[in-house]
């Protein structure tokens, strides 16, 4: 997949992974990986970016005698997902336009 397109999608995917309950780094990767390829080094800047944009908050909690960072979606983060759903309609129209060109070429 195109890197720019994937990058934008990954932000939404990470938000979607914490949409229903708080999650932590490894779990986010496990949840997102079946759909979009994501690695630890890819996730880190995304988390930092989303945190800076206040789309998620970070808290550190103890887990099995060590510290683990948990990520929680904010209202702005939920709004970002909602906005993406709307953008998707536009994308579908663009897709329609692109495929129409193709069928015209063939004809």
């Amino acid at each position: 997949m195109d890197i720019q397109l994937k990058r934008g999608l990954l932000d939404i995917c990470v938000l979607a992974a914490i949409k229903n309950e708080d999650s932590y780094g490894y779990k986010i990767i496990k949840d997102v990986k079946p759909y979009v390829d994501i690695s630890e080094s890819t996730l880190y800047p995304i988390l930092r970016r989303l945190e800076a944009a206040e789309l998620l908050t970070v808290r550190t909690a103890e887990h099995n005698g060590r510290l683990r960072k948990y990520y929680r979606i904010t209202e702005a983060g939920k709004a970002r997902i909602a906005a993406f759903k709307e953008e998707w309609q536009e994308l579908l129209m663009i897709y329609g336009f692109i495929t129409k060109e193709e069928s015209d070429d063939k004809a």
Partner: peptide, 16 residues
């Protein structure tokens, strides 16, 4: 931050 992050990732994989 990076060291903490990768340390957590290793621990979670081991736990898995």
């Amino acid at each position: 931050r990076y060291v903490e992050y990768y340390s957590e990732m290793i621990d979670d994989r081991v736990e898995d």
